[in-house]
Nucleic acid binder design. Structure first.
Ligand SMILES: [Mn+2]
Ligand SMILES: [Mn+2]
Ligand SMILES: [Mn+2]
Ligand SMILES: [Mn+2]
Lengths: 225, 225
DNA sequence: GTATTAAATTAGATTATCCTAACAAATATT
DNA sequence: AATATTTGTTAGGATAATCTAATTTAATAC
């Protein structure tokens, strides 16, 4: 009874796992405070959940030390992320949602318990490697292929680049990009770079526009060859 | 603060509402005991939830008296049922699931909060009136069109009938029908009726088979004209 | 290296949901 | 009607997830 492997990770814990996974990729040292901010909870809530998740061997946790996912925790997290990103892709590709509309729905659907449901999505989509925002979709075993990509603020003057992903997919960023007509696959030429504030002028097709460093630092690119 | 109309009905309460709605159609007098059995909970849990839901004006409830849904409760219930049935239809029509596979997934997806998500399903499906098991889908305002249908055990000898629905869609029934090759729209001739146990022999195409009254009482039919 | 600040933990409550045990009311049976 | 049975309620407790307030530990700044 103590070690029933059919015990289901709760909805809530799945969200903790995901947050931990993402923070780990961002920072390597994840603290109680980081998690509290990410999940918009108070620190005591985090501490107490960390104690519980450590018991369940999802994380390694010692008082006052940084939090680490175990292999088990990593795998479970990656599988939720897979379900999230497959869902986003499904919503965009098969149900005609805009890329700025899908995150909140995926945040809920990622918790559906049905391997077959996500298997069908995956099949219908032809086993996509990336979600609609250019982020990699872990495989069904929880393996994650991290692409290390450079952001647009590091692109050289006069090169032609292709936008291939986003560091994050906040509604605000996505709507900003929509308004500028920028999407994944968009090509642009780096026309000017302003060293003072890091802003740049780019040409997307015939349209020229200024991008602040705030924006350009959130776009992954590849040099067009 | 006391009357915040944005307060969301919980996952749990949505399931209570649905159960109440279905039981009301089945029995007209719904008791604490009925609900306890339907939801597989103990009676004290029901009593205490009924007290809470009465406070929230979802039901009318007085100690020891049968439970009634309010208009508000009925509407909310019908909207969950709508989401459930649209989901089942979507899974069958757009994702190629078998009709016996969709209920458990729909049981979860019905709780997703996103009008737009279900709106898209509805559009993609062309605003279906019935779910894959022949049950009516309430409209988006919570209006329910109850069809009063007769079950196959009441069909006359030698008539040709079409199966148009099921009184319930338990896995067991659906798998039995699959094994017999019976689905919605199947035509059959009533070849023999055995008064002793209520069983009947029917011809589905060229195949003749016996249906017990247990089965025939779960199939809605229409006379083929 | 002491003092200050920030981060983390503990203690103790709260809300939601569900349970068992004990009791009460309503129904059914002699 | 008196008794037995079934149904429903109350009392009191458990677990999950969260919070505020108080306290402790660690990190930073003088
Ligand atoms: Mn997302
Ligand atoms: Mn989520
Ligand atoms: Mn169903
Ligand atoms: Mn449900």
């Amino acid at each position: 009874m103590a070690n029933d492997s059919t015990l289901k990770t709760s909805h809530t814990q799945e969200n903790y796992l995901k947050a931990l996974y993402h923070l780990t990729l961002e920072k390597k040292e994840v603290t109680v405070n980081d998690l509290a901010k990410r999940l918009d909870l108070k620190m005591p809530s985090i501490t107490s959940m960390m104690q519980k998740m450590a018991n369940e061997k999802l994380i390694k946790y010692e008082k006052y030390k940084p939090i680490k996912l175990t292999e088990k925790g990593k795998k479970e997290a990656a599988i939720i992320i897979r379900k999230h990103r497959l869902t986003e892709m499904f919503l965009v590709e098969k149900m005609n949602f805009g890329w700025e509309e899908v995150h909140d729905i995926a945040e809920q659907i990622e918790h559906i318990q049905s391997q077959k449901f996500f298997q069908k999505m995956d099949d219908m989509l032809g086993h996509p490697a990336l979600d609609p925002h250019g982020s990699p979709i872990p495989d069904k075993y929880g393996n994650y292929k991290q692409l290390d990509q450079k952001t647009l603020d590091q692109a050289d003057l006069n090169t032609t680049v292709v936008v291939i992903g986003l560091t994050n997919s906040s509604d605000d960023l996505l709507r900003f990009l929509n308004s500028k007509g920028i999407k994944l696959g968009s090509e642009m030429v780096i026309v000017e770079k302003e060293p003072f504030d890091g802003s740049m002028k780019v040409a997307v097709g015939k349209k020229e526009m200024m991008l602040s460093s705030t924006v350009s630092a959130q776009l992954f690119f590849q040099v067009k060859k």
